[in-house]
């Protein structure tokens, strides 16, 4: 295989990696940041993707927009805002629920959403939504990934970011310090959903197709896996998790048995991580870099 062939072949997996990483970063804010388990993250991704696609296919020609860069930027905004709105609709009632119920309610909403998408003929129903213009590409995906990563890293230090983390660690203590835990959780959920929507907008304009399956529970589980395997508490962990989930199957391309069994190993890693190394694989890697590991938690 020549270098050129390799690059050619790598583009799609890299796009998938970038998009999974953006999804995972969004969920990281909800799961690792606010401590809320959303089992319906893929639904917000699908909402973003469908809305962005509907925007470029139906709305943009009507508005007379043709510039591809502008269109892509606008569709990112549309994707983010629509997912944000969907996240808001789900979160407002569901955040009143405690832990496990919240997880099931988000799962339920995702299933309902998938069912609804299957029944909307304007976006293809069960057949899926095709013929979406190709607007995004590898650079788009990676620049967006970098921006989202950067923004989330800075977001942690802001007032809201601190409030979200405090709420995750101890709601009663957070409230006793004047933090409205409800708005903290709501913000985390809504922002995380919006990020998923951005990933959706990038996806539909790279692959030029989306089907209701994208809102599936199994897709949501993949994102949860990425966040948990890499290490819930860190952003780089989520990106690492996405890398493992996308690249490992690609690397196993020539080994069908291993490739088919990959979910078994991912599931085992998740259980292992939860039981023995709650900070995820990232913290295991950190152990091989003693200096970096000692930075946090050491005396200075």
């Amino acid at each position: 295989m020549t270098v050129q062939e390799f690059l050619q072949y790598s583009i799609l997996p890299l796009i998938f990696f970038g998009i999974t990483a953006i999804q995972a970063l969004g969920l990281q804010l909800i799961l690792g940041g606010a401590g809320l388990l959303s089992l319906g993250h893929a639904a917000f991704y699908a909402v973003g993707g469908y809305s962005a696609a509907a925007f470029t296919v139906y709305a943009a020609p009507a508005l007379g927009l043709t510039d591809p860069t502008l269109l892509m930027l606008l569709s990112l905004v549309v994707g983010a805002l629509s997912a944000l709105a969907a996240g808001f609709l789900v979160a407002v009632p569901c955040l009143r629920l405690q832990g496990d119920y919240l997880a099931m309610a988000t799962l339920g909403f995702a299933e309902i959403l998938g069912t609804a998408l299957k029944n909307i003929d304007a976006v293809g129903g069960t057949r899926g939504f095709g013929n979406i213009p190709k607007l995004s590409s590898l650079p788009w995906v990676f620049v967006t990934l970098a921006l989202v990563w950067w923004a989330l890293a800075r977001f942690r230090r802001t007032g809201l970011g601190m409030a979200i983390q405090a709420t995750r660690d101890d709601e009663i203590a957070a409230r006793s310090l004047g933090i409205s835990t409800y708005s903290a959780k709501l913000s985390a959920f809504v922002i995380g959903s919006a990020i998923a929507g951005i990933a959706g907008a990038l996806y539909v304009h790279a692959v030029q197709f989306i089907s209701p399956d994208e809102a599936d529970f199994s897709r949501s589980v993949i994102i949860v896996l990425a966040v948990v395997i890499g290490g819930m508490t860190s952003l780089s962990g989520s990106v690492l998790g996405a890398l493992i989930l996308v690249v490992v199957p690609e690397a196993l391309r020539h080994n069908d048995t291993l490739r088919e069994q990959r979910m078994i190993y991912f599931a085992l890693i998740v259980i292992f991580v939860m039981l023995f190394s709650p900070k995820g694989l990232q913290s295991l890697f950190m152990r091989f870099m003693p200096k970096a590991a000692q930075q946090r938690g050491g005396t200075r």
């Binding site: 089992l39 069994q261 979910m263 939860m274």
Partner: peptide, 21 residues
């Protein structure tokens, strides 16, 4: 509550894929 719930999701995935494999 989070850790057991995620573990449970992992177990579900594991059993499903083990049987399938």
């Amino acid at each position: 509550k989070l850790a057991p719930l995620i573990t449970a999701v992992g177990l579900s995935l594991l059993l499903q894929n083990l049987v399938q494999a």
